[in-house]
Structures are given as structure tokens and as C-alpha cells.
Simulated assay, not measured.
Amino acid sequence: MKKTYSALFIAGVLLFAGCGSVPVTGRKQLSLVSNSEVLSLSLQQYGDFIKSAPISTDKANTALVQKVGRNIAIAVETYLKNNGYADQLSEYAWEFNLVKSSDVNAFCMPGGKIVVYEGILPYTQNETGLAVVLGHEVAHAVAKHANERMSQQVATQYGTAAVGAALSGSSAAVQQAAAAAIGLGSQYGILLPYSRKQELEADKLGLIFMAMAGYDPGQAASFWQRMAANGSSTPEFMSTHPSDNTRIQQIQKDLPEALKYYKGVSSGKTNNAKTSNQWKF
């Protein structure tokens, strides 16, 4: 009985000490892995990827990806600064790359390293559609979904009561967790298979972030509908990603909140810059 109480006490202490919260949504999340370790591992993997990736030679679309990415990153950093998260700004060194690949995909590594595949551009169609994708990927970074997933993997591998010992004085446990949490996507890249909860949270935050940058979040559902036409038939319960219908329905529910942050013109091609004090909500 004493051992049981001891294990529960240790578990409670670890969970309390390793609990963070997501900006904007406020959701509590498990955070056992340090940001520095996650960033170190991800930068190494991202560097290896960029060295071998076929970077796009399409100058116009590359410039568009970088433009939209910068607009969203600036808006998000302004929000973080004005809402008590200024200490997190040093964690981000935003980089937006377009890769020559027919894959309909995009991914984000911790620290703000984001890659878009050319194959998704026919579905984004315009600047606002691209903002949907980049807002979603930026959201994964800001919500620290990679940290959360690695923390969950550590807890699963070692058991809650053993997490402290596993993480003390060595990053071996983190490296093993990263290997399990990060899967190989296609021949070109590394993808983090986030949970359905994290994906839907990234959708919601993505709507808000694109709205902060002056892009109309009302166009997000149309993008996902175009993606749905290209979707696989994998049942939702077998996939880490939500089904297309679930995603679109949730986006429609989240839209009214996102529109509170939207001050721009719904042109689909332009965005309006915001002053530094406009994102104090």
C-alpha cells in the first residue's frame, strides 16, 4: 500500500511539475522534455533534411511562401509579446521553405522551421489559402506539440514514476522518445504524427493566427474542402489526423472566435499589417 501511495505521489509531482499551457486556447499539456533538448534535436534533423531536400526553383511561389510565413510569424510574435509570453520569443527562428515535390503536404519542426511542398499549392490556390496552411503549421510550433508528443512518449516508455530518473543527467531518454515520436514521412522529409486533438487545436490556432495577420479565416473551410476531394479513405479511428468532415465541421464552429481577431480585407490576395498594440486580447 505504501508503494502504491509513493508511486501516486511521484506521478502527481511529475505531472504537476511537467505541466504547461497552450497560448490562446489555455489547454494544459504534459511538458516533461525541456525546450532546449527538443530544439537541439529538431534543428539537427531539419538541417539534415534541408541539405538533401530538392528546394523549389519556383521563385514566385517561394517568395509567396516566405511572405505569408513572415506575416503570420510577425503577428504571432506580437501577440505573444503583448500577452505574457515574451519569454518564449527567443525559441523561434522562423524559416519558410518551398520544396519541389508533388506530395500534397507541409510540416513544421519545433523552433519555427516550416516546409511547404509544391504539391499543396493547387489546393491553396491563393495567398489566403496558403495562410491557412502556414497558420496551421505555425500553430504546431507555438503550441509546442512536438514537446508534448515527446513528453507523452517518455511517460509511456518509462512509466510516470520512472520519468524523473530517465531524464536526469542524460538526454538518452529524450532521444529515444524523439525516435519514437518522429516518424519518416515521405522520401523528402520528417513528419510529426500529431494526435487528432493536436491537429484540431492547430486548425483552431491557425484560424486565429491567419486572422491576426490580416487573412480572412472564413476561407479556411474552402481550402479543407478542396483537400477533402484529394483525401484518403482511412477511417478516422485508424488515423492520427481527424477525418475531413470532422475537421471542416470544427473549423466552422471555431470561425466566430477567429473572426474576432480579423481586421483585414477579405480579398484572398492581400493582408493588412497590424500595429504592435492591436493583439492585446
Rank of each mutant, 00 (worst) to 15 (best):
K2R: 14
S6N: 08
A7D: 15
A11N: 15
A11Y: 08
V13E: 11
C19H: 12
V22H: 02
R27K: 14
K28C: 14
L32N: 11
L32Y: 06
S34Q: 15
S34K: 15
N35Y: 12
N35A: 14
S36C: 04
L39T: 12
L41P: 00
L41Q: 09
Y46G: 02
G47D: 06
D48A: 09
F49E: 10
I50L: 14
I55S: 09
K59Y: 10
T62F: 01
V65M: 06
K67S: 09
G69A: 04
L80I: 04
G84T: 14
Y85V: 01
Q88I: 03
S90E: 12
E91A: 11
Y92F: 15
L98Y: 12
S101A: 07
N105E: 08
A106K: 06
C108T: 08
E118W: 06
E118V: 04
G119M: 07
L121C: 05
Y123V: 01
Y123D: 04
Q125P: 01
T128N: 15
G129V: 01
G129I: 01
G129L: 06
A131F: 11
V132L: 05
E137Q: 05
A139C: 08
K144H: 13
H145N: 04
R149H: 00
M150L: 15
M150T: 07
S151F: 09
Q152N: 15
Q153E: 14
V163W: 00
G164K: 13
L167G: 00
A172G: 04
A173H: 06
A173P: 00
A177C: 11
A179M: 14
I190P: 09
L192N: 02
Y194K: 00
S195L: 00
Q198V: 03
Q198K: 02
E199D: 01
K204T: 15
M210E: 05
M212E: 08
P217D: 04
Q219H: 08
A221P: 10
W224M: 03
Q225S: 13
Q225C: 11
R226C: 09
A229I: 04
N230Q: 15
S232W: 05
E236T: 11
F237R: 09
M238Q: 03
M238G: 00
H241D: 09
Q252D: 09
L255C: 10
L259M: 10
Y262E: 05
S266P: 14
K269N: 15
T270R: 07
N272M: 10
A273H: 04
T275F: 04
S276E: 10
